[in-house]
């Protein structure tokens, strides 16, 4: 996996207890076209607090262009921004 740290548009839902479930996201590709990726499975979720900045990191799996890929997305709590961290 390569570090990308690309800002993405995200659709996610929250449980009553505040648990966050990412569903699908949309991002700009190199040729300026947009691609929507459905998150098929969240493999792992962890919280990081590096530099005192809390982020939720999800390791996910999706089929992109007929290839099954594993990648990491990050949610920055302070800014409410989502990033495609590694793919």
């Amino acid at each position: 996996m390569k570090i990308l740290m690309k800002p993405i548009k995200m659709i996610a839902w929250f449980n009553e207890d505040g648990t966050l479930h990412p569903v699908r996201f949309n991002m700009k590709q190199k040729d300026e076209s947009h691609i929507t990726i459905r998150i098929d499975r969240v493999i792992k979720k962890r919280e990081e607090k590096l530099a005192g900045n809390p982020m939720l990191v999800y390791t996910c799996q999706s089929i992109i262009n007929n290839i099954e890929r594993i990648y990491e997305i990050k949610y920055e709590l302070r800014t409410c921004k989502w990033y495609l961290f590694k793919m």
């Binding site: 530099a51 982020m55 990033y83």
Partner: peptide, 13 residues
């Protein structure tokens, strides 16, 4: 250090 870690967290290599 604070700056370095913050940057690493934001994808700086």
């Amino acid at each position: 250090s604070f700056e370095a870690v913050y940057r690493l967290q934001h994808g700086e290599t």
